[in-house]
């Protein structure tokens, strides 16, 4: 099957003008009379493509330029320079046809009408996106049962918990079944169970409707569970773009070797092989430098009474941390 690019970004640059103000009352007065501006380079010459139906994870520390990139892609911001094309539209023209095929969910900003039940927002979106009645009913029924929120659709939003609200936000954004979906920190501040719930939902949605999704998250678990491909941004630049496995292979500083021992072994003996993560006889977990793994495994098999041995990849969070540290 021929893959088509849903999103193309070429040499995108975005700078902000920020007013500077010295602290204190005097500073305020000074800035009233004469305001100093400073240009901040939020996105610095990035290029990437996303295929139709692909789910890509955007990773980076705060202020890396993730959200700015999403804002450029969704048409909220004019790029300073470079080319952006989403479904063959220039996003910032904000043509109706373009707006009808995208959605942008922001973990920290809601579109739901605060004082009204979520259903009112859904109904309004139904009209905004010209969805016919039958389709609308079906979508709401399906999405709300997947997210288990069927019983709160008529409760005012302000009375819902953060998790319930986020679920409703997702439904509101998906009423029109967008072809391209931008998710900016959709799981922020939510508990682990709901995070998992949302993750599964996003995965199902992506597979079922073949929608293109870009997701940013601080929680590596989100990215790990959802995206095969990740783009890592730092300081407005892309520092990695590829499969998650490749990232781990390339940058993983260590691997984990877990052992089941037949006989108890002296701790000192294990210490020589690597860093002991845990040792509760008969189980032991060792952390070993990636390139040493083969050597250590051979040594273990030769010298220790093992019942079972298992090599695991490093924790993804550690890998990412390692990537950022190496860069600096």
């Amino acid at each position: 099957m021929l893959k088509v690019n849903a999103i193309t970004v070429k040499n995108l640059i975005k700078t902000y003008r920020v007013a500077e103000k010295s602290p204190g009352v005097l500073g305020s007065i000074k800035s009233l009379v004469r305001r100093k501006y400073r240009d901040v380079l939020a996105v610095n010459d990035i290029s990437f493509n996303v295929e139709e139906g692909e789910l890509v994870g955007f990773i980076g520390p705060n202020g890396a330029g993730k959200t700015t990139t999403l804002k450029c892609l969704s048409g909220l911001l004019y790029p300073t320079s470079g080319e952006v094309s989403v479904l063959n539209h220039k996003p910032w023209e904000r043509k109706t046809q373009f707006l009808k095929s995208i959605a942008f969910v922001m973990g920290q900003k809601n579109q739901l009408w605060w004082d009204l039940p979520p259903m009112e927002t859904f109904l309004l979106n139904k009209e905004i996106y010209d969805i016919d009645g039958a389709n609308f009913q079906e979508t709401i029924k399906e999405l709300s049962s997947l997210l288990e929120i069927g019983n709160i659709l008529l409760t005012p939003v302000k009375k819902l918990s953060l998790g319930q609200r986020m679920k409703c936000e997702l439904v509101a954004a998906l009423v029109h079944r967008p072809k391209v979906l931008f998710l900016d920190e959709p799981t922020i501040g939510l508990d682990v169970v709901i995070q998992k719930n949302l993750r599964e939902f996003i995965k199902t949605y992506n597979q079922k409707y073949q929608s293109t999704i870009i997701l940013t998250s601080h929680y590596m678990r989100d990215v790990e569970a959802l995206a095969r491909r990740v783009i890592i941004i730092d300081g407005g630049k892309i520092i990695f773009d590829g499969l998650l496995e490749t990232l781990v292979k390339k940058y993983a500083p260590y691997k984990l070797i877990s052992l089941i021992l037949k006989k108890e072994v002296d701790v000192q003996k294990l210490k020589k092989l690597g860093i002991i993560k845990s040792y509760n006889y008969p189980q032991a977990v060792l952390s070993v430098e990636s390139r040493e793994t083969n050597k250590v495994v051979t040594e273990i098999l030769k010298n220790l009474p093992v019942d079972d041995i298992n090599v695991q990849e490093a924790d993804i969070e550690d890998v990412i941390r390692h990537v950022f540290q190496n860069k600096k």
């Binding site: 804002k71 969704s74 048409g75 909220l76 904000r94 109706t96 707006l99 009808k100 995208i102 959605a103 942008f104 922001m106 900003k109 809601n110 579109q111 979106n125 905004i128 996106y129």
Partner: peptide
Amino acid sequence: SGDVSNTLIKPV
């Protein structure tokens, strides 16, 4: 506050 984005990303 950036809330206006909600209107901007919709065909309204």
